[in-house]
Design a protein around this nucleic acid. Structure first.
Length: 328
DNA sequence: TCTCCCTGGAGGTATTTCTC
DNA sequence: GAGAAATACCTCCAGGGAGA
């Protein structure tokens, strides 16, 4: 078992002695100075913080970085990190100066696939912040659309091998424009609708998106707000940050509808958020009578139904008299 | 304290509309 | 016409409040 694992690691990382040389062909593994590394230009995931980061730093201090990061050369001796942003960050904190890295010579779309797929390998969508998932899914979809080739989806299956066998399966002609969103949905085990909902979050202003992350705005209301202009969203953000109003499904739907009809003024936003425009009559509340009051007018042997009947008759007479007095 | 009911939100499917 | 995006509507679940 152990032997098999070691062999597998060797297959993956190659001969460690060889790796000491600076072979830089795609797929080779070398040791890189941390100073040579730059973050992926549009990295959608937030870096670990707190206890999770501390644990990683401790682990690296004790055992080193077990799995090489994945990078691609970007010229001037620099390498862009495709997978392993947290490992690089933790290595810096652990005081290391070098890290083992697998070099990949990939284009922008393939780079996106590796960035997203390696993160999704380690973390399920449910572990990610909505903002991270929104960006990740959007990038996946754009990459899939941009290439329009099935190999992108195959690469999702095998993130460690974007140059793998791409054209031999399924028999689809290369370049066939498939239903990108369906494929992204399949790969993430999510429905098409939910993929679309999360992607809509990218239309939110940062402040509102942050509220989705900290769960003060739920996903569905947030999706409704994403259809509003950035100016309207900003007014909403300002209003709820000052007044502390909550946005639920009903309010968000109303705001979206008003915006669509071009009738979403500052005053309307305020009245919707505050609930002032709520025309729905309030549910009648039940009241309790104090025992002192009950004993004043009713005998102890009278049950609730009898008492209610007397109260109803009395109130009917009372309101009739009141009405007659007002008519005079 | 327990049960029931209501509400809000999530996840989904089916359908319609829009865009290329 | 096909794919993408939007919409409508359904079920399920969790949480909170009211009543017994």
């Amino acid at each position: 078992m152990i032997e098999k694992k070691l062999r597998s690691l060797e297959d993956l990382f190659g001969d460690p002695i060889k790796n000491k040389s600076t072979v830089k062909e795609s797929g080779s593994i070398i040791e890189l100075e941390l100073d040579c590394l730059i973050s992926f230009s549009d990295h959608p995931f937030k870096l670990y913080t707190g206890e999770r980061l501390e644990n990683m730093v401790e682990s690296i201090k004790e055992n080193g970085v077990l799995q090489p990061i994945i990078v691609r050369p970007v010229g001037s001796g620099k390498y862009e990190i495709l997978a392993g942003h947290n490992r690089v960050n933790a290595s810096q904190l652990a005081g290391l100066s070098k890290i083992r890295a697998e070099i990949r010579d990939v284009d922008d779309h393939e780079a996106v696939i590796i960035v997203i797929a390696t993160n999704l390998e380690q973390r399920s969508p449910s572990d990610m912040l909505p903002s991270e998932l929104a960006k990740a899914l959007k990038m996946q979809l754009e990459a899939a659309k941009a290439t329009g080739k099935k190999q992108i989806i195959n690469a999702l299956d095998s993130p460690s091998n974007p140059h793998g066998d791409r054209d031999s399966q399924e028999g689809n002609p290369v370049g066939h424009r498939g239903k990108s969103i369906e494929k992204v949905a399949d790969k993430n085990r999510m429905s098409k609708t939910n993929i679309q909902r999360y992607i809509r979050l990218n239309e939110l202003i940062p402040d509102l998106l942050e509220r989705v992350d900290d769960e003060t705005i739920a996903l569905r209301p947030a999706v409704h707000l994403s259809y509003l202009s950035r100016n309207e969203q900003q007014i909403i953000e300002d209003t709820i940050s000052i007044k502390g109003y909550k946005i639920d499904m009903a309010k968000s739907e109303k705001l979206k509808d008003l915006s669509k009809r071009g009738k979403l003024t500052d005053e309307k936003i305020y009245s919707v958020l505050s609930g002032e425009d709520e025309k729905k009559p309030k549910k009648p509340t039940s009241i309790k009578l104090k025992p002192k009051l009950v004993t004043k007018f009713f005998k102890s042997e009278q049950n609730q139904a009898e008492i209610e009947k007397v109260i109803e008759e009395a109130l009917t007479i009372y309101f009739q008299m009141k009405e007659e007095k007002e008519d005079e």
